[in-house]
Amino acid sequence: MALTNAQYDAIMHEYEERRSLHRQELEDRQRYVYDNVPGYKELEDAIATTSVNFGKRLLSGERLDRSALKKEIAELSRQKLTLLTEAGFSSDYLDMGYTCQDCQDTGYIGNEKCHCFKQKIIEALYDKSNLKIMTKSANFKLLTDKYYTGEDLKRFQGAVRTSEDFVKNFNSDYQNLFFYGTVGTGKSFLSICVANELLKKGHSVIYFSSLGLFTMLSEYAFDYKAKQELHDIYEDLYNCELLIIDDLGTERVNSFVLSEFFSCINERDIRKKSTIITTNLSLEDLQAIYSDRIVSRIVSNYKLLKLTGPDIRKLKKIAKKESEDLQ
């Protein structure tokens, strides 16, 4: 399911709006400096005048030393920078700002799509996954350990530290996470917290519930029309920087699911693309339900993070109802 022309145009329009906004912000900063740093505007005008006069003399046939022009402009620029910093501004105060420094808000690095453009494609194509909605209510700032005690608390705090390190080292350290344990203990929440942070850094993230993932793969494999529509999604499963498979074990397990699941995690491992899996299954259940080679891949290539404790979703519902009853 490639982008439609309308979707592509909408993305490019957003980049143009970004550039326009940053240009306006730069112009506002320039006006502020002109009004508040005496002599700065005059130096800037002097650079422009010097360059224009040099060009006119070249066009008139004079043989001039370009290095002299460079030295003069360099000295004027140095004086500008001195005025700027002595007035309390940072040396890069009048540099152009960009939302994405890598592509400078063009969407492309050379002829290749930037990682931020790829994420916008994913957002357009996978809008039904509700990842954007989920990240609004799941981030590290909203985490609380008040529902955990004893060993449950230690496990939760350890899982949070590991998740934060996963984000911090994402660019340099290939890792996979496997959250497992009892129902309602924050496994999915933590995975979305990670997704939220990586999305903000411009990384490509795809989220699927386990049931949704294998339903899509089944349609791709057995429905010819769907295969054409789902081709790009299928490819992105292997190429996105982070894939989240949520609630493993809710799908109907059969030979097709086992084969596709192994293919997915194995191929992503070969390509060094990170994956996060969450499940309510115990490791014993995992061993009983899935093939040995799947379990072997997970145990050897994923950080296993067990979360236990009360069902937090249930506790929150009870607390909300009690609060409403008191009103």
Rank of each mutant, 00 (worst) to 15 (best):
Y180V: 02
G181E: 03
G181Q: 05
T182I: 00
T182E: 10
V183H: 00
T185E: 00
G186K: 00
G186M: 01
K187M: 01
S188I: 00
F189G: 04
L190I: 04
S191C: 02
S191V: 01
I192C: 03
A195M: 06
A195I: 05
N196V: 03
N196S: 14
E197I: 05
E197L: 05
E197S: 14
L198E: 14
K200H: 14
K201M: 15
K201E: 15
G202M: 11
H203K: 15
S204E: 14
S204W: 05
S204T: 15
V205S: 13
V205I: 11
V205N: 13
I206V: 12
I206K: 04
F208L: 05
S209I: 02
S209Y: 02
S209T: 14
S209L: 04
S210A: 10
L211I: 10
L211W: 04
G212C: 03
G212I: 00
G212L: 00
L213Q: 03
L213G: 02
T215F: 02
T215N: 11
M216I: 02
S218G: 11
E219R: 07
A221S: 14
A221M: 13
A221L: 09
F222Y: 15
F222Q: 12
D223R: 03
D223A: 08
K225S: 15
A226P: 12
A226S: 15
A226H: 08
A226N: 12
A226E: 15
K227M: 12
Q228N: 15
E229A: 13
E229M: 09
L230H: 06
I233F: 09
I233W: 06
Y234A: 09
E235I: 03
E235F: 00
D236S: 08
L237D: 11
Y238L: 05
N239E: 13
N239L: 05
C240L: 03
L242H: 04
L242W: 03
L243D: 06
L243P: 10
I244G: 08
I244S: 08
I244D: 07
I245G: 10
I245P: 07
I245F: 05
D246A: 08
G249Q: 12
N254G: 11
S255K: 07
F256W: 12
V257Q: 11
V257S: 10
L258G: 10
L258E: 15
S259P: 07
